[in-house]
Each structure stands twice: as structure tokens, then as C-alpha cells.
């Protein structure tokens, strides 16, 4: 299992680096097109692994259910703007079921919720950001840092910001010739409130509900012996 984990990290880092390098150095005008292709290329290895791995029917249904819950989680919170539990649910899935499952739950939750809210050029970016959130949660779950409550809270807080910044980059890449510090700062400043709300709601949910959610997911995992193979 160690090998596949290294493979995941290396491939995703290399491709992300490629994305940045190509945008900075290529004298090529179609940045948005290029970035879309790159994002798709980054995600291909993850989905390919999911296709080739030996996954049973129960596991597929469980992952689909988790992704659907993450997408539906927005519904009861419709009255509380900018608080949504999707990220929390994805982080929990990653923590209990591992990096690969975390990625699948995050990426599928993004597609599914966009089927109801409308697909757009932002879909691949959201898929990648949420997928990575679940994946990093799975990768770090056995470290001493993530075992503590403080570690989990920090993780949730930081990801609240990374997610917002990553979604900002798609706006910037779409308009890259206008790149100037003022422009970038303006875009990031306009999202500060939303990112903060996202980060704080992650922390809040992890403090109040983290333990019980992990218990519920682990109970299912132990009871039916599901998605154990990646817990190496």
C-alpha cells in the first residue's frame, strides 16, 4: 500500500507543478483551456485506480451514499448562508476510509451537487479541490498530529482557506493577462469573508461532531468489513 500512496502523491504534485509552470512559461494564450486540460489530467490517475482496484458492490454503494450525503448536506443549511457541511463530511470520509476513498467522495460530491445546481467551467476545479481535501485527510490520518483534536481543527481551518484560494485561481486563470498584484489581491480580498466562514464552520463541526461521526463511520466499517484494504 505504501507504493500506491507514494504514487498518488508524486503524480498529483508533478501534474500540479506542470500546471503552474506551463501557465507561467508557455507563451500560449489559451490559459483557461490549458488549465482545464491539466485539471482533467491530474484527476485521471485517481479515477483510473478506482477503476482497476478490486472494489465490491457494497463499497461502491457506500461511497455513492457518502458523496450523496455530502451533496445533500447543503439542504438543511440553506437558511444559513456560507455555512455548509460538505467539506466536513468529505474530511470525515477521508479520515475513516482512507485517501483514495476520500478523493472519490470529494470529487463525486462536487459533480453530483453541480448536477442540481448547474454544471459549469468551475466543476473540474471544485472536483479537484474537494477531492484533494478528502485525499489529504486520508493521507494524514495516521500521523500523531491528526489524532489530536487540535490537529483536526487546524486541518479543517487550513483547508477552508485552501479551498477558497483554489476556487479563486480559476477566476484568475480565466483572466490571466490582467494579472497584477492589485487584481489578485482584489479577488482574494473579496473572498475573505466566505473563506473565513468556511474555515470556521469546518472547525466548529469537527469540534462538536467529529468524534461521533468518526464513530458512526468506523462502526459501519467494522460491522461489514468495508473499505479496509487501503488502511495500511
Amino acid at each position: 500500500m505504501g507504493r500506491s500512496r507514494k504514487y498518488l502523491v508524486i503524480v498529483s504534485l508533478i501534474l500540479l507543478l506542470l500546471l503552474v509552470v506551463s501557465i507561467v512559461f508557455f507563451h500560449y494564450r489559451a490559459y483557461l483551456l490549458l488549465s482545464m486540460i491539466m485539471i482533467a489530467a491530474i484527476m485521471i490517475p485517481f479515477f483510473a485506480r478506482f477503476e482497476w482496484r478490486d472494489v465490491g458492490g457494497r463499497e461502491v454503494v457506500l461511497l455513492a451514499m457518502l458523496a450523496a450525503i455530502a451533496a445533500v448536506g447543503r439542504v438543511p443549511f440553506a437558511g444559513l448562508p456560507s455555512i455548509q457541511p460538505t467539506s466536513f463530511i468529505i474530511i470525515m470520509a477521508g479520515l475513516v476510509f482512507g485517501a483514495e476513498s476520500g478523493f472519490i467522495v470529494g470529487a463525486v460530491a462536487a459533480i453530483v451537487s453541480n448536477f442540481f445546481l448547474g454544471q459549469g467551467p468551475w466543476t473540474p476545479w471544485q472536483m479537484y479541490a474537494w477531492g484533494m481535501m478528502g485525499m489529504t485527510a486520508g493521507l494524514l490520518r495516521n500521523t500523531a498530529f491528526m489524532k489530536t483534536l487540535w490537529g483536526k481543527c487546524t486541518f479543517g481551518f487550513v483547508w477552508g482557506y485552501i479551498f477558497g484560494w483554489f476556487m479563486n485561481t480559476w477566476v484568475i486563470v480565466g483572466n490571466i493577462e490582467a494579472l497584477s498584484w492589485k487584481y489578485v489581491a482584489g479577488i482574494f480580498a473579496s473572498s475573505i469573508y466566505f473563506d473565513l466562514a468556511h474555515a470556521l464552520s469546518n472547525v466548529f463541526f469537527i469540534i462538536v461532531f467529529g468524534v461521533s461521526w468518526i464513530k458512526i463511520l468506523q462502526r459501519i466499517q467494522r460491522k461489514y468489513g468495508l473499505l479496509y484494504e487501503q488502511s495500511g
Binding site: F47, V60, A64, A67, A109, V112
Partner: peptide
């Protein structure tokens, strides 16, 4: 398999609502 997963997940949304 991914398409199947997504399709099932979409089907779960109305049920979960």
C-alpha cells in the same frame, strides 16, 4: 465504475432529501 458510482449517487439525492 466511476460513471456507475456517480449515477447511483445522483439517484440517492432525491431519496436523501
Amino acid at each position: 465504475r466511476t460513471a456507475f458510482l456517480i449515477m447511483m449517487s445522483i439517484r440517492f439525492v432525491p431519496l436523501l432529501k
